[in-house]
Simulated scan of single mutants.
Amino acid sequence: MSSSQHPVALALERRVGGATRLLATVMLLPLLDGVFAAVVLAGGLASVTGIIEVGLLVFGGSATLAVILAEMEGSPREVVTPILAVGAIVIIGSVVVAALAPTIQTVLDPAVFERFAAIIILAIAGRTASAKIGDWLPRPSMILLIGFVASVNASGFSLVVQTDPELMLRAAAAAGVGVAFALAAAVGAPWLRNAVDIDRFRFGSAVALGVLPISILTSVEAPVSLAVLAVTTLLSLDPQRARERDEHYEPDAVDVTAAFADGGASQGVDHDTTDASSRPTVDDDDDRAPWL
């Protein structure tokens, strides 16, 4: 399987460096850029299905999987320890966001803000699918700020400080699902590294994240995102390779994603020179046409 050039993970890696720091940045990013806050305020944690979807797609997802499989080295036991440390911070952060959400919600128009929350999720899905698309999309934090301004209920403005313990538990559960996903990936990493097509999983995760707003904006209770994610997992997994434990992860010399993006120039593929031995030879003494 080829190594993944995940656009989100690559952009963060250039800034922070280090596998554990990169994983922490990837998993904490939904708390920092306002994505998780938007989901909480839009009612994305109202059901068990929503909790699982948010945990897998927001805190888990392809970026977390790419970091664990491609960047984190060592045995599963060695990798689990930093994941647990990062997971504890993620869970605490999600509880803090959920604790502030009811107070913020008292000054917002839910119907208006839900639409902006859907736009934020779609923007994240676009940035996950392609780095080029992400360059054209605004940052989720900017969309969140515009959403706050547009959905403030100016007529009945009254800030009421309140907390919702049940919502805080739901937020912790969603973060816990994401941490469990990361732990499962770490434990299965020796088998998954060469058995999972990360790029295919990334595109499928982007689609699953893109349909997540359906459950927020509509009354559809079917787990559409989970169904898409399940199909994505099946299509990106090679069971034959998963049966063999791979101690040494050696990705392909030519990265498929980058090669398709620029025709292979960044991978050292020269289209102007060809191997003479690969050219077909024609015997002049043979009366047959060369294509026969």
Rank of each mutant, 00 (worst) to 15 (best):
M1S: 12
S2H: 14
A9H: 03
L12C: 02
L12D: 08
V16R: 07
L22C: 08
L23P: 09
A24F: 13
T25V: 07
V26M: 04
L28Y: 11
P30R: 10
P30C: 04
L32F: 15
V35W: 00
L41F: 09
G43T: 10
A46H: 11
S47N: 12
S47P: 04
V58M: 04
T64K: 03
T64L: 05
A66R: 02
V67S: 10
I68P: 05
E71F: 09
M72N: 02
M72Q: 03
E73W: 02
E73H: 14
E73G: 01
L84V: 07
G87E: 09
I91Q: 00
I92A: 15
S94A: 15
A98V: 05
A99W: 01
A99G: 02
D109Y: 03
P110Y: 07
V112F: 13
F113R: 08
R115G: 02
A117M: 11
I121G: 03
I121D: 08
S130N: 13
A131F: 06
A131M: 05
A131D: 10
I133V: 15
L137V: 03
P140Q: 12
M142P: 00
L144C: 06
I146N: 01
A150F: 11
S158A: 15
Q162W: 01
D164R: 13
A172H: 00
G176R: 10
V179Q: 01
A184D: 00
V187H: 10
A189C: 02
F201A: 15
F203D: 03
G204P: 01
S205M: 06
L212C: 12
T218L: 05
S219P: 02
S219H: 12
S219A: 12
V220K: 02
A222C: 02
L229I: 10
L229Q: 08
T233N: 02
S236R: 05
S236T: 04
R243P: 00
R243G: 13
D246W: 10
E247S: 13
H248M: 08
Y249A: 13
Y249P: 06
V254P: 03
A258T: 06
A261C: 09
G264M: 11
A265G: 03
D270T: 02
D270L: 08
D270F: 00
T274S: 11
D275M: 00
A276V: 11
T281C: 00
D283E: 14
D283M: 08
P290L: 02
